[in-house]
Design a protein around this nucleic acid. Structure first.
Lengths: 343, 343
DNA sequence: GTGAAAGCGCTAACAA
DNA sequence: TTGTTAGCGCTTTCAC
């Protein structure tokens, strides 16, 4: 690697010298502030364009005391349909406020803290966080400094702040009731890390729905399936039990896809019912089409961003928790009747 | 909205006063620079933690002349499997360099310029861009200022810079040859905006493969299908032609899914062959499983980031173009033989 | 309508 | 090992 010799970027001083005026007038022109003649302003803009001037927002934000017109979004994966929809909702609201939305993916839970602090050090005006590590109490300092925080999809741990979540328990309850209504009594569950809030909630909805019935045998609940392959394996094990479930409830997209693979592997797609939590693009194209509990992730993003901007504007009421409804989309896989009605 | 009264954040001066030393010693301790006693350093770190001090990187980067240890990624959608994989690759390399990766989604092509300039004004150290607008010549100023730019997935227009793309034409050629080998002569094409580089390239690969054969009737090529619904409609129209195609080649994920819906609508899934460009998660779960031209998007991200960091480190050779191979994944839909062998 | 001076919080360069 | 001075590029304040 060669020694770095980056050409310096033109500054307001360069523009000012070129036009023959003071730096302050350049600032006024470029920021469209009043108190400058149309003539001078035009000249400044022309020269700025010629020089390829780009205002240094590091300096600007520093002087303006940390107002960066930027909000940060911190998630585990940049993507998956879920995050794309979430960020789309956030973007919409941020655009109305003229703020730039910058997203960072943490990939690993142990990089969450450093990523959040990096955003804080760069002085974003606020943060939307989908927490994935075990504890966010290190954010007390940001909160004390008045940095607005909004948690989405999952509540924070170790700190209290605005939160927007889906009605996970309600969705789990509805899915399970739906399967019960179709005659199922042995309903298997395939889900991801049991430590995650959404997983716990969805399972608790499942259990609540089964509370009136005879049983929810623990061997039918397979959590901690990380990735589609693990989910496929877990579903396969359930299907090979001496008394296998007649229906599967999968706690997220990835698990649903894994379970669908297992069902196909055993040619049980049209005999064992399947309901997945969270919709996905090709759910209608599988055989049979997959019934899901859908969440309105767009709205989740919009709510989170609206809360955040209200806080940025100065709203300092107590933390609010917003719970968004979920709804069941019947596509076929969830409407398969139980083969052997319960005794 | 109340008047905003954000508590001031502690600065190095606050820490220095509290410890009773100079601000420079605080700086040294916090940045783990040499020239400070272990004792003082420890004391500084303790007080900094107590106060919830977060170094103001706006000021730091300003003083250090725009080195922000941040790279920007600008894409149209934050997500879809494609972008997630791309960003994953970038993240991996950036982590090795200790840089933060911040992603901005432009959503609309007409916001690309303002988003890129916003990143430039915030003085990122470099940019990875998946261009979606018609022209990027406004980036000449950034290039002149020595801001490294790497374009991914599509080359820039109006400016010359490092570029990492897939072998789109090769993939289109391979897909078409594959279908020809299975006896297909009338091969329909469903694709997105014809103005997009990747679409043009994939079509040109298709045409090249057909050059030796009798024809590639223009009525079989349906471009500008934006969204799955439009693709489904276009595919449906192709299938209702007096002389319908016996195979479909879809130029991206979304089109493939739309075409799959059309095939199911007409119950032709097992009679008309289907090959899609770019793999997707449930391709193996459709009926029949979907044959695709896969691109290694992870590698695309890594290559782009490696190029970018080489530039950031000072490499100033001429712009390089990297073309990554694609490969066909046979899953079934692409191996359906033509119903009516060509005359 | 315009400009000079001060300073945002930090680090580079140098002095002690 | 520690501190002092200057200044990064901009906006705020105030004077003209």
């Amino acid at each position: 690697m060669v020694g770095e010799r980056r050409p310096a970027r033109p500054t307001m001083k360069d523009v000012a010298d070129r036009v023959g005026i003071s730096i302050k007038s350049v600032s006024r022109a470029l920021n469209r502030e009043p108190g400058i003649s149309a003539d001078t302003a035009e000249q400044v803009l022309r020269v700025a364009r010629q020089l390829g001037f780009r205002r240094n927002d590091l300096a600007r934000s520093l002087r303006r005391r940390d107002r960066t017109e930027t909000i940060g979004v911190v998630v585990r994966h940049a993507s998956t349909r879920f995050f794309d929809n979430l960020i789309r909702g956030i973007d919409e609201v941020a655009a109305e406020h003229g703020a730039l939305v910058l997203t960072a993916a943490t990939r690993m839970a142990d990089r969450e803290e450093s990523t959040l602090l990096a955003m804080s050090s760069r002085r974003v005006d606020g943060l939307v966080i989908v927490p994935s590590s075990a504890d966010q109490s290190f954010l007390h300092a940001e909160q004390a400094a008045g940095l607005p925080l909004v948690f989405a999809d999952r509540p924070p741990t170790g700190i209290s702040a605005d939160t927007v979540i889906a009605d996970n328990a309600g969705g789990g309850y509805a899915a399970t009731r739906h399967l019960l209504a179709h005659g199922h009594r042995r309903i298997g569950v395939v889900g991801a890390q049991s430590s995650v809030f959404t997983v716990k909630e969805r399972v608790s909805g499942y259990r609540a729905a089964l509370a009136g019935t005879r049983d929810a045998p623990p061997e039918l609940v397979r959590l901690d399936c990380v990735g589609a392959t693990a989910a496929q394996r877990a579903a396969g094990e359930l299907l090979r039990l001496p008394e296998p479930p007649t229906a599967l409830f999968c706690l997220n997209n990835v698990c649903t896809i894994g379970a669908a693979r297992a069902l196909r592997e055993f040619s049980l797609g049209n005999q064992v019912a399947l309901v997945g939590f969270d919709d996905f693009d090709t759910a209608d194209l599988l055989d049979p089409p997959v019934t899901v509990v859908a969440q309105d992730v767009d709205t989740m993003g919009r709510c989170a961003a609206q809360l955040l901007f209200a806080r940025i504007k100065g709203d300092d009421g107590p933390p609010r928790v917003t719970v968004l409804p979920t709804h069941l989309i019947h596509r076929g896989s969830g409407e398969i009747a139980a083969r052997l009605p319960a005794t």
